[in-house]
Amino acid sequence: MKHNQVRQVVFPVITAMIWGTSFVAQSTSTEHVGAYTFNAARSFVGFLALLVVIQIFDAVNRRKQASASPSQEQSAPAESRKTLVIGGICCGFALALACNLQQLGMVAGAGAGKTSFITTLYVVLVPICGLFLKKKVSPAVWLSVLLGVAGLYCLCIKDGFTIAPSDLLVLLCAFGYTLHILVIDHFTQKVDGIKMSCIQFLTCAVISAVLMLIFEHPTWADITPCIGSILYVGVFSSGVAYTLQILAQKDSNPTIVALLLSLESVFGAVSGAIFLHETMTAKELIGCVLMLIAVVLAQIPFPLKKKAKIA
Protein backbone atom coordinates (compact mmCIF):
# COMPACT_ATOMS: atom_id res chain seq x y z
CA MET A 1 0.00 0.00 0.00
CA LYS A 2 1.34 3.45 -0.95
CA HIS A 3 2.31 6.01 1.71
CA ASN A 4 -0.59 8.30 0.75
CA GLN A 5 -3.08 5.42 1.03
CA VAL A 6 -1.73 4.47 4.46
CA ARG A 7 -2.04 8.08 5.63
CA GLN A 8 -5.55 8.33 4.17
CA VAL A 9 -6.73 5.29 6.14
CA VAL A 10 -4.63 5.12 9.33
CA PHE A 11 -4.73 8.81 10.33
CA PRO A 12 -8.55 9.18 10.16
CA VAL A 13 -9.08 5.95 12.10
CA ILE A 14 -6.69 7.13 14.86
CA THR A 15 -8.49 10.49 14.87
CA ALA A 16 -11.91 8.83 15.15
CA MET A 17 -10.63 6.64 17.99
CA ILE A 18 -9.30 9.68 19.90
CA TRP A 19 -12.52 11.63 19.40
CA GLY A 20 -14.67 8.63 20.33
CA THR A 21 -12.77 7.80 23.53
CA SER A 22 -12.84 11.50 24.49
CA PHE A 23 -16.53 11.06 25.31
CA VAL A 24 -15.46 8.81 28.20
CA ALA A 25 -13.15 11.53 29.54
CA GLN A 26 -15.94 14.09 29.19
CA SER A 27 -18.40 11.83 30.99
CA THR A 28 -16.11 11.13 33.97
CA SER A 29 -15.40 14.85 34.39
CA THR A 30 -19.10 15.60 34.96
CA GLU A 31 -18.74 14.10 38.45
CA HIS A 32 -16.36 16.89 39.46
CA VAL A 33 -16.81 20.08 37.41
CA GLY A 34 -19.50 21.87 35.43
CA ALA A 35 -19.71 22.05 31.66
CA TYR A 36 -18.29 25.57 31.31
CA THR A 37 -15.35 24.87 33.62
CA PHE A 38 -14.42 21.70 31.74
CA ASN A 39 -14.64 23.34 28.32
CA ALA A 40 -12.70 26.43 29.42
CA ALA A 41 -9.87 24.20 30.68
CA ARG A 42 -9.85 21.75 27.72
CA SER A 43 -10.00 24.57 25.16
CA PHE A 44 -7.09 26.40 26.76
CA VAL A 45 -5.05 23.18 26.81
CA GLY A 46 -6.01 22.64 23.15
CA PHE A 47 -4.85 26.18 22.37
CA LEU A 48 -1.46 25.51 23.99
CA ALA A 49 -1.15 22.13 22.23
CA LEU A 50 -1.80 23.68 18.82
CA LEU A 51 0.70 26.46 19.55
CA VAL A 52 3.34 23.73 19.85
CA VAL A 53 2.14 22.08 16.63
CA ILE A 54 2.27 25.43 14.78
CA GLN A 55 5.83 26.07 15.98
CA ILE A 56 6.90 22.64 14.71
CA PHE A 57 5.21 23.11 11.33
CA ASP A 58 6.63 26.63 10.95
CA ALA A 59 10.15 25.38 11.71
CA VAL A 60 9.82 22.64 9.07
CA ASN A 61 8.47 25.10 6.50
CA ARG A 62 11.30 27.57 7.19
CA ARG A 63 13.86 24.85 6.55
CA LYS A 64 12.20 23.88 3.29
CA GLN A 65 12.06 27.50 2.11
CA ALA A 66 15.67 28.10 3.13
CA SER A 67 16.91 25.04 1.21
CA ALA A 68 14.83 25.87 -1.86
CA SER A 69 15.43 29.62 -2.14
CA PRO A 70 17.11 31.27 0.88
CA SER A 71 16.57 34.76 -0.47
CA GLN A 72 12.82 34.47 -0.87
CA GLU A 73 11.07 34.90 2.47
CA GLN A 74 7.51 36.03 2.31
CA SER A 75 5.29 37.15 5.17
CA ALA A 76 1.53 36.76 5.20
CA PRO A 77 -0.27 39.90 3.98
CA ALA A 78 -2.23 41.96 6.51
CA GLU A 79 -5.53 41.06 4.81
CA SER A 80 -4.77 37.35 5.18
CA ARG A 81 -3.93 37.78 8.89
CA LYS A 82 -7.17 39.72 9.38
CA THR A 83 -9.18 36.94 7.72
CA LEU A 84 -7.35 34.38 9.88
CA VAL A 85 -8.28 36.18 13.11
CA ILE A 86 -11.91 36.79 12.05
CA GLY A 87 -12.26 33.17 10.93
CA GLY A 88 -10.77 31.86 14.18
CA ILE A 89 -13.07 34.00 16.33
CA CYS A 90 -16.19 33.01 14.32
CA CYS A 91 -15.24 29.33 14.56
CA GLY A 92 -14.57 29.77 18.28
CA PHE A 93 -18.05 31.15 18.92
CA ALA A 94 -19.63 28.25 17.02
CA LEU A 95 -17.41 25.71 18.81
CA ALA A 96 -18.25 27.21 22.22
CA LEU A 97 -21.96 26.86 21.45
CA ALA A 98 -21.61 23.25 20.30
CA CYS A 99 -19.23 21.85 22.91
CA ASN A 100 -20.97 23.53 25.84
CA LEU A 101 -24.37 22.19 24.76
CA GLN A 102 -22.79 18.75 24.42
CA GLN A 103 -21.17 18.88 27.86
CA LEU A 104 -24.36 20.25 29.46
CA GLY A 105 -26.18 17.25 27.99
CA MET A 106 -23.65 14.88 29.53
CA VAL A 107 -23.90 16.68 32.88
CA ALA A 108 -27.68 16.23 32.66
CA GLY A 109 -27.24 12.49 32.24
CA ALA A 110 -26.59 11.63 28.57
CA GLY A 111 -24.20 8.67 28.33
CA ALA A 112 -20.98 8.67 26.31
CA GLY A 113 -22.28 6.17 23.73
CA LYS A 114 -25.58 7.90 23.09
CA THR A 115 -23.93 11.33 23.01
CA SER A 116 -21.40 10.19 20.41
CA PHE A 117 -24.12 8.89 18.08
CA ILE A 118 -26.45 11.89 18.39
CA THR A 119 -23.54 14.31 17.92
CA THR A 120 -22.49 12.56 14.71
CA LEU A 121 -25.84 13.54 13.21
CA TYR A 122 -24.10 16.75 12.08
CA VAL A 123 -22.82 14.73 9.10
CA VAL A 124 -26.41 14.51 7.84
CA LEU A 125 -27.37 18.05 8.91
CA VAL A 126 -24.52 19.75 7.03
CA PRO A 127 -25.75 18.89 3.50
CA ILE A 128 -29.32 19.73 4.51
CA CYS A 129 -28.24 23.18 5.68
CA GLY A 130 -26.37 23.44 2.39
CA LEU A 131 -29.78 23.77 0.71
CA PHE A 132 -30.00 27.30 2.12
CA LEU A 133 -26.65 27.98 0.43
CA LYS A 134 -28.10 26.76 -2.88
CA LYS A 135 -26.16 23.50 -2.87
CA LYS A 136 -27.72 20.39 -4.41
CA VAL A 137 -28.58 17.43 -2.20
CA SER A 138 -28.66 13.89 -3.56
CA PRO A 139 -31.52 11.44 -2.94
CA ALA A 140 -29.11 9.39 -0.79
CA VAL A 141 -28.82 12.30 1.66
CA TRP A 142 -32.60 12.59 1.94
CA LEU A 143 -32.70 8.87 2.72
CA SER A 144 -30.00 9.50 5.34
CA VAL A 145 -32.19 12.16 6.93
CA LEU A 146 -35.10 9.74 7.24
CA LEU A 147 -32.84 7.06 8.73
CA GLY A 148 -31.30 9.62 11.08
CA VAL A 149 -34.72 10.76 12.31
CA ALA A 150 -35.74 7.11 12.84
CA GLY A 151 -32.49 6.49 14.71
CA LEU A 152 -33.03 9.54 16.91
CA TYR A 153 -36.54 8.36 17.69
CA CYS A 154 -35.20 5.00 18.89
CA LEU A 155 -32.40 6.65 20.87
CA CYS A 156 -34.18 9.57 22.49
CA ILE A 157 -37.97 9.28 22.50
CA LYS A 158 -39.31 7.71 25.66
CA ASP A 159 -42.73 6.26 26.43
CA GLY A 160 -45.43 8.85 25.92
CA PHE A 161 -43.45 10.54 23.10
CA THR A 162 -41.24 12.64 25.39
CA ILE A 163 -37.56 13.44 24.98
CA ALA A 164 -35.16 13.67 27.92
CA PRO A 165 -33.65 17.15 28.52
CA SER A 166 -30.15 15.65 28.26
CA ASP A 167 -30.91 14.19 24.81
CA LEU A 168 -32.40 17.49 23.64
CA LEU A 169 -29.23 19.35 24.66
CA VAL A 170 -27.06 16.88 22.73
CA LEU A 171 -29.38 17.15 19.71
CA LEU A 172 -28.99 20.95 19.81
CA CYS A 173 -25.25 20.37 20.06
CA ALA A 174 -25.38 18.52 16.71
CA PHE A 175 -26.87 21.68 15.17
CA GLY A 176 -24.08 23.67 16.83
CA TYR A 177 -21.43 21.46 15.24
CA THR A 178 -23.25 21.82 11.92
CA LEU A 179 -22.84 25.59 12.18
CA HIS A 180 -19.22 25.08 13.20
CA ILE A 181 -18.48 22.97 10.11
CA LEU A 182 -20.15 25.46 7.78
CA VAL A 183 -18.12 28.33 9.27
CA ILE A 184 -14.91 26.31 8.92
CA ASP A 185 -15.81 25.49 5.31
CA HIS A 186 -16.19 29.22 4.60
CA PHE A 187 -12.78 30.23 6.00
CA THR A 188 -10.54 27.17 5.62
CA GLN A 189 -9.89 27.76 1.90
CA LYS A 190 -8.53 31.23 2.68
CA VAL A 191 -6.28 30.68 5.71
CA ASP A 192 -4.06 28.14 7.47
CA GLY A 193 -6.39 25.57 9.08
CA ILE A 194 -4.23 24.76 12.11
CA LYS A 195 -3.58 28.43 12.96
CA MET A 196 -7.30 29.18 12.63
CA SER A 197 -8.07 26.25 14.93
CA CYS A 198 -5.59 27.60 17.47
CA ILE A 199 -7.45 30.93 17.54
CA GLN A 200 -10.81 29.18 17.75
CA PHE A 201 -9.74 27.21 20.84
CA LEU A 202 -8.54 30.40 22.52
CA THR A 203 -11.87 32.07 21.70
CA CYS A 204 -13.81 29.06 22.98
CA ALA A 205 -11.73 29.06 26.18
CA VAL A 206 -12.46 32.74 26.83
CA ILE A 207 -16.22 32.38 26.19
CA SER A 208 -16.44 29.26 28.37
CA ALA A 209 -14.42 30.95 31.13
CA VAL A 210 -16.80 33.92 31.17
CA LEU A 211 -19.80 31.57 31.42
CA MET A 212 -17.95 29.62 34.13
CA LEU A 213 -17.50 32.75 36.25
CA ILE A 214 -21.18 33.65 35.82
CA PHE A 215 -22.86 30.27 36.37
CA GLU A 216 -20.30 28.08 38.14
CA HIS A 217 -17.95 28.48 41.08
CA PRO A 218 -15.21 25.86 40.61
CA THR A 219 -12.35 25.31 43.02
CA TRP A 220 -8.98 23.66 42.46
CA ALA A 221 -10.22 20.80 44.60
CA ASP A 222 -12.98 20.22 42.01
CA ILE A 223 -10.66 20.49 39.00
CA THR A 224 -7.79 18.33 40.32
CA PRO A 225 -9.59 14.93 40.04
CA CYS A 226 -10.33 15.48 36.33
CA ILE A 227 -6.95 16.91 35.27
CA GLY A 228 -6.27 13.69 33.35
CA SER A 229 -9.54 14.01 31.42
CA ILE A 230 -8.88 17.68 30.64
CA LEU A 231 -5.35 16.95 29.39
CA TYR A 232 -6.49 13.98 27.30
CA VAL A 233 -9.30 15.89 25.60
CA GLY A 234 -7.25 19.07 25.29
CA VAL A 235 -3.98 17.60 24.01
CA PHE A 236 -5.14 14.54 22.08
CA SER A 237 -8.66 15.41 20.93
CA SER A 238 -7.73 19.00 20.01
CA GLY A 239 -4.02 19.07 19.22
CA VAL A 240 -3.15 15.58 17.98
CA ALA A 241 -6.46 14.55 16.38
CA TYR A 242 -7.02 17.84 14.57
CA THR A 243 -3.48 17.74 13.17
CA LEU A 244 -3.93 14.14 12.01
CA GLN A 245 -7.19 15.14 10.30
CA ILE A 246 -5.39 17.94 8.41
CA LEU A 247 -2.60 15.56 7.34
CA ALA A 248 -5.10 12.87 6.34
CA GLN A 249 -7.08 15.19 4.08
CA LYS A 250 -4.00 16.46 2.25
CA ASP A 251 -4.11 15.10 -1.32
CA SER A 252 -6.61 12.42 -0.24
CA ASN A 253 -10.13 11.43 -1.18
CA PRO A 254 -12.29 13.58 1.17
CA THR A 255 -15.19 11.10 1.01
CA ILE A 256 -13.06 8.22 2.27
CA VAL A 257 -11.55 10.37 5.03
CA ALA A 258 -14.97 11.64 6.16
CA LEU A 259 -16.32 8.10 6.09
CA LEU A 260 -13.55 6.89 8.40
CA LEU A 261 -13.93 9.90 10.71
CA SER A 262 -17.60 8.98 11.22
CA LEU A 263 -16.35 5.91 13.11
CA GLU A 264 -16.09 8.36 16.02
CA SER A 265 -19.62 7.37 17.02
CA VAL A 266 -18.75 3.67 17.06
CA PHE A 267 -15.61 4.22 19.15
CA GLY A 268 -17.67 6.39 21.50
CA ALA A 269 -20.28 3.67 22.05
CA VAL A 270 -17.68 0.90 22.46
CA SER A 271 -15.49 2.90 24.87
CA GLY A 272 -18.58 3.88 26.88
CA ALA A 273 -19.50 0.21 27.24
CA ILE A 274 -15.93 -0.86 28.15
CA PHE A 275 -14.79 1.92 30.50
CA LEU A 276 -18.11 3.22 31.90
CA HIS A 277 -20.06 -0.05 31.75
CA GLU A 278 -22.88 1.69 29.89
CA THR A 279 -25.68 -0.45 28.52
CA MET A 280 -28.32 0.28 25.92
CA THR A 281 -31.74 -1.19 25.36
CA ALA A 282 -32.49 -3.11 22.17
CA LYS A 283 -34.41 -0.07 20.89
CA GLU A 284 -31.45 2.24 21.53
CA LEU A 285 -29.05 -0.18 19.82
CA ILE A 286 -31.32 -0.21 16.75
CA GLY A 287 -31.23 3.60 16.85
CA CYS A 288 -27.41 3.52 16.86
CA VAL A 289 -27.34 1.19 13.85
CA LEU A 290 -29.80 3.37 11.93
CA MET A 291 -27.82 6.53 12.67
CA LEU A 292 -24.54 4.87 11.68
CA ILE A 293 -26.07 3.81 8.36
CA ALA A 294 -27.41 7.35 7.88
CA VAL A 295 -23.98 8.87 8.57
CA VAL A 296 -22.21 6.51 6.16
CA LEU A 297 -24.86 6.89 3.44
CA ALA A 298 -24.72 10.69 3.65
CA GLN A 299 -21.02 10.62 2.76
CA ILE A 300 -21.16 8.29 -0.24
CA PRO A 301 -20.83 10.46 -3.37
CA PHE A 302 -23.80 9.23 -5.39
CA PRO A 303 -23.89 11.33 -8.58
CA LEU A 304 -26.81 13.70 -9.07
CA LYS A 305 -28.75 13.27 -12.29
CA LYS A 306 -27.53 15.55 -15.03
CA LYS A 307 -29.55 16.78 -17.91
CA ALA A 308 -28.49 15.25 -21.16
CA LYS A 309 -26.57 17.63 -23.34
CA ILE A 310 -28.08 18.43 -26.70
CA ALA A 311 -25.60 18.11 -29.53
Rank of each mutant, 00 (worst) to 15 (best):
M1Q: 11
H3T: 13
H3G: 01
I14M: 14
T21W: 07
H32M: 09
G34Q: 06
A41W: 13
R42D: 08
L48E: 09
Q55A: 15
F57G: 05
F57E: 15
N61V: 00
R63V: 02
Q65K: 10
S67F: 00
A68Q: 12
S75W: 01
A76M: 13
C91Y: 10
F93L: 15
F93M: 10
L95Y: 07
L97M: 15
L101N: 04
M106C: 02
V107R: 09
G109I: 06
A110D: 10
T115V: 10
T120S: 15
V124F: 08
V126P: 02
F132Y: 13
K136N: 14
P139R: 09
I157A: 13
K158C: 06
T162S: 13
A164L: 01
D167P: 01
D167E: 09
L172I: 06
C173Q: 05
A174S: 15
L182Y: 05
D185Y: 05
Q189Y: 13
K190N: 15
C198P: 00
Q200P: 04
S208L: 08
L211K: 12
L213Y: 01
F215Q: 11
H217R: 14
D222A: 12
D222I: 00
S237W: 10
S238Q: 13
Q245F: 07
S265M: 05
V266M: 03
S271G: 05
F275L: 09
H277C: 11
H277V: 04
E284Y: 07
G287S: 03
C288D: 03
V289R: 03
V289Y: 06
L290A: 09
V295L: 12
L297G: 07
L297R: 08
I300W: 04
K306W: 01
K309R: 14
